[in-house]
C-alpha cells in the first residue's frame, strides 16, 4: 500500500493510443480517469484526438465552450483557461479541438507549446486520449508520455494497426536519438516494409546502423530496452481473445525485441454501448458491470506497476 502511495505522489502522463479508430481509446481513457479520481487522485483528461475529439461525450459532457483549439490558436493564452471541471470530483478535462484542419494539424511550435504547458499543470495524472492513425503528432504525444498504452481489439485489422503503431513509434524514437542525417535517412528507408536493403525487423536495422556507426547502434539497442509500451485488449468475448494479449507480448518480444506489458483486458458487454447511447460514463452508469470491473483492474495494475501473467490462463 505504501508503494502505491509513493507511486501516486509524482505526476505522471499516460497516453492511450492504438492506431486504429473505434477501438475504445476514449472510452477506456475516460473510465480510467474516473477510477483514478475515485481513488482521490487529481486527474486531468486531455483529448489529444485533434481531428475527431469525443472524449467529452464519453464523460457525458456537451460540446464545451473552451477547447484545445482556443489554446492552440492562442485565443486562450494559458492552458488553465481551457480546463473544464466535470461533475466528478478530482476529474477535469481539456476537450479536443472542435474546428477543422487548423487544429487537427498543429505545427511544431503549437505542439511544443502544448507539451510544455502540460508539464506545468498541477495534477497527479494527465491522461492523453490520442487519435487514430500514426501521424507524427500522435506518435510524439505517445513518446512524450511516461507510459504509452496501446488499445487493441482481438481482430486482425486492429492488431495490424497496433503493430504498425508500435513500429512507427519505435522508429520515430530512434530518429529522435540519432544525430547523423545518414542514419536518419536509413531509418526512414527502413520504415518501408518493402525496402530493398533487406531491413525487415528492428534487429536488422540496428545491425545495419552498427555497421555504419557502432556507438549509435548501441544507443539504439538501449532505446529498445527503454521502450515498454503497455497493452489493453478491448472487447474480449472468449478466453482465446484474452490469450491474444499474451501472444502479442510474445510476438513483440521476438520481433521487435521490446517488452510489452499486458495490463489487462476489457470484456465485451452491451452495457458499454448502452452507456455511450445514454451519454453517461460506464463507470458511473454501470459501476459493477464486467467491463467496468475490468477497467478498475487495469487501473490497479497500472498503479502497482503489475501486469497479467500467462499462468492465470492455464
Amino acid at each position: 500500500m505504501i508503494e502505491i502511495q509513493d507511486a501516486l505522489r509524482k505526476k505522471e502522463i499516460w497516453a492511450i493510443g492504438g492506431g486504429k479508430g473505434g477501438i475504445g481509446k476514449s472510452l477506456i481513457t475516460g473510465n480510467i480517469g474516473i477510477h483514478l479520481a475515485r481513488l482521490k487522485k487529481k486527474v486531468l483528461l486531455v483529448d489529444a484526438d485533434l481531428g475527431g475529439a469525443n472524449l467529452h461525450t464519453t464523460l457525458g459532457i456537451g460540446v464545451p465552450e473552451m477547447t484545445l483549439s482556443d489554446f492552440l490558436n492562442r485565443r486562450a493564452e494559458n492552458i488553465q483557461d481551457v480546463i473544464i471541471k466535470t461533475s466528478i470530483p478530482n476529474l477535469s478535462l481539456i476537450s479536443g479541438a472542435q474546428d477543422f484542419l487548423d487544429a487537427a494539424n498543429p505545427n511544431f511550435a503549437q505542439k511544443t507549446r502544448l507539451l510544455r504547458h502540460l508539464e506545468t499543470l498541477d495534477a497527479d495524472y494527465i491522461l492523453l486520449d490520442l487519435g487514430a492513425g500514426t501521424s507524427f503528432n500522435i506518435l510524439d504525444f505517445f513518446l512524450f508520455s511516461d507510459h504509452g498504452i496501446l488499445v487493441v481489439l482481438p481482430e486482425p485489422t486492429a492488431i495490424e494497426n497496433a503493430y504498425r503503431f508500435i513500429k512507427s513509434a519505435f522508429y520515430r524514437r530512434f530518429k529522435k536519438v540519432v544525430a547523423s542525417q545518414n542514419i536518419k535517412d536509413l531509418i526512414d528507408a527502413a520504415m518501408d516494409q518493402k525496402n530493398t536493403m533487406g531491413i525487415r525487423t528492428p534487429y536488422d536495422l540496428i545491425e545495419r546502423v552498427k555497421q555504419m556507426e557502432r556507438e549509435v547502434g548501441e544507443i539504439l539497442e538501449l532505446e529498445v530496452l527503454k521502450f515498454r509500451p503497455k497493452l489493453i485488449v478491448n472487447q474480449v468475448r472468449t478466453k482465446n481473445d484474452i490469450q491474444i494479449g499474451f501472444s502479442m507480448k510474445s510476438a513483440c518480444q521476438k520481433y521487435f525485441g521490446i517488452n510489452v506489458e499486458y495490463l489487462g483486458y476489457v470484456e465485451y458487454d452491451d452495457c458499454v454501448w448502452q452507456s455511450i447511447r445514454s451519454k453517461r460514463p460506464l463507470a458511473i452508469e454501470y459501476p459493477y458491470s464486467r467491463p467496468s470491473r475490468c477497467i478498475e483492474r487495469i487501473v490497479h495494475n497500472l498503479l502497482r506497476k503489475e501486469q497479467l501473467t500467462a499462468s492465470m490462463l492455464y
Binding site: P154, E155, P156, I159, E160, Y163, R164, Q243, I244, F246, S247, M248, S250, A251, Y255, A310, Y314
Partner: peptide, 19 residues
C-alpha cells in the same frame, strides 16, 4: 510449449501482419 505453440500456430491472429 503448449502456450508458445499456440501463439505461433498458422493463421494466429495475434501475429497478423508481423510474420
Amino acid at each position: 510449449y503448449e502456450r508458445i505453440r499456440r501463439v505461433y500456430e498458422p493463421n494466429s491472429v495475434a501475429l497478423y501482419s508481423l510474420f
